[in-house]
Design a protein around this nucleic acid. Structure first.
Length: 111
DNA sequence: GCCATGGCTAGTA
DNA sequence: GCCATGGCTAGTA
């Protein structure tokens, strides 16, 4: 994991590392929900905790946090926030179709 | 007690 | 919308 700054104490434990590892393995153009990521990392139903960890990632993080969505396919952040814009932009640049705050084709899309 | 969650009702059109 | 989850954080003792 490329970093110039040292990890804070809370980011060093096993749970965080498992989460980062699972996140790093999601290929470009693919998306996953908070809950699925928690499962994938072997963290059970810690979906909510996953959201908080992502919120605390540094701005220059290399991890593909933008590939994580709500279970219903919507982006997890308020639509007007800078982070949400960045997420939307990055997803589109990977070929993911985002339509008003929602990834098309994730769990069923409205026709 | 918080939450970048999730799942499952009710209540409307 | 409402309430259950799960781990963390702040604020007392």
């Amino acid at each position: 994991m490329l970093r110039d700054k040292p990890l804070s104490e809370s980011q060093l434990n096993e749970r965080h590392l498992r989460l980062y590892a699972a996140l790093a393995q999601i290929p470009p153009g693919c998306v996953m929900s908070y809950g699925e990521l928690a499962q994938q990392a072997g963290l059970g139903r810690a979906a909510r905790w996953v959201g908080r960890v992502l919120a605390q990632l540094p701005d220059d993080s290399r991890l593909p946090w933008h590939r994580i969505l709500r279970a219903d396919g919507r982006l997890g952040l308020p639509a007007d926030s800078p982070s949400a814009r960045k997420q939307c932009e990055r997803l589109r640049s990977e070929g993911v179709l985002v339509e008003n705050g929602r990834v098309k084709g994730f769990k069923q899309d409205a026709p």
